[in-house]
Design a protein around this nucleic acid. Structure first.
Lengths: 214, 214
DNA sequence: ATCAAGTGTTACTTGCGGTAACGGTAGCCT
DNA sequence: AGGCTACCGTTACCGCAAGTAACACTTGAT
């Protein structure tokens, strides 16, 4: 029959696709995101045009590759987030799940988040994109300094200030990025929402220089 | 004399460098980060090798370009952060400064933060790097949903939840990225620090499903 | 005049993404 | 059988961009 035949072929194609993705995974995790289509094809034991027949272009392949990993990560996060427990516990579990994931497979993480960092520095590969991280890092460090010198955080203040510096900068960055794309509200509203989010322990801590507010 | 001569030439070289950077700026802001060295050279009225003599390679040029903008932005942020005012005011001013900057010059922002987004979609340009944004966005949206359905935020809850969702995800992302690179503390410590940072308004707000708090 | 050094050029190499055109091989039809 | 279709796979190529080598022109010091 037509349908069974088609199904057979589709199945075979899907299996092939999965094999190719696994090969691509190996190469990308070994050579970094700068891996060439030729290398991936070689790892899979075939040649380039087949990759293109399956995935259209490099973006398609990488998107398929990314989807596998992001889906897995998102599922784990959802589980942690939906667990029946106190809110703070859930939040900590979710944070820990995410951090454990990036800790366990840093290569995957780098592929998903920093696609421009090549692996072999000898290669004349791309290095476009080495700019965002420096900016975020610098902002985080500067903010950490300001926090540490102007806010009384008790013991471990330095560690805490650095974590918060980078965390707050990341919050600002991600929220700003999303806001810039969707423009869901005015700038003032966004600022207020973010400041409100921030106004917890940070607001309760007293100033180091000024009078204690508690 | 040797020194004056050198100084003269160095000055001239520096002026040239600045001119080239301005030309590169124009091109990159017009054509996106996928701009070719040829295009930049053409805009500057010269040819490729000169660019390479001045900046070494494309990464060098882009780094110099990025430095200009990041320095300017960081200075503005420092000013807002060091202003003599209440802490919350300073925080809001800093957030607003950052957001105003990315709002005023989104092209610069996109160059600094999303170097892989090409400008002309007709070009067979790079699209590697379209993966990080989707993951962050998806995480932000999912978290927003969870927040909105499980936390009582009063009016404007939807807007607030989305801002917080993306903000918190960004915080987690940036802190995790920094932590993964420097390993300044254990995972548990990081989780606790971030949860502490978060525990402000979020902790004070009552559950939607549970009993209303005050 | 000559030498040195910086500015600029053309013309090339290398490597990658992407494609066209061709060669096998399996199953189905009459 | 023989032929049709459809898929898997190949080699060989195009276009384009990064980066470089080698050569030419001004300019000022000696």
């Amino acid at each position: 029959m037509d349908t069974t035949q088609r199904t057979d072929q589709q199945r075979s194609a899907d299996r092939r696709r999965r094999e190719l993705l696994e090969a691509a995974d190996r190469v990308v995790l070994r050579d970094g995101p700068g891996a060439s289509m030729n290398a991936i094809a070689a790892e899979a034991g075939i040649t380039k045009p087949i990759l293109y027949r399956h995935f259209g272009d490099k973006g398609g392949l990488y998107a398929a590759l990314a989807k596998r990993h992001t889906d897995a990560l998102l599922e784990a996060l959802r589980a942690a987030l939906d667990a029946p427990a106190e809110r703070r516990e859930r939040v900590e579990a979710t944070l820990d799940t995410y951090l454990a994931a990036i800790e366990a497979r840093p290569q995957v993480y780098r592929f998903l988040m920093h696609p421009s960092d090549g692996a072999s520095p000898g290669d004349p590969g791309f290095d476009v994109g080495k700019h965002s991280a420096p900016l975020l890092r610098r902002m985080g460090e500067e903010l950490a300094e300001v926090i540490e010198e102007r806010v009384d955080l008790g013991p471990d203040s330095q560690q805490l200030a650095r974590v918060w510096g980078h965390g707050i900068v990341g919050m600002m960055h991600a929220a700003g990025d999303w806001w810039l794309g969707e423009r869901p509200c005015s700038r003032a509203e966004l600022v207020r929402a973010l400041a409100d989010l921030l106004w917890g322990r940070l607001a309760a801590a007293g100033d180091k220089l000024g009078g204690p507010s508690f």
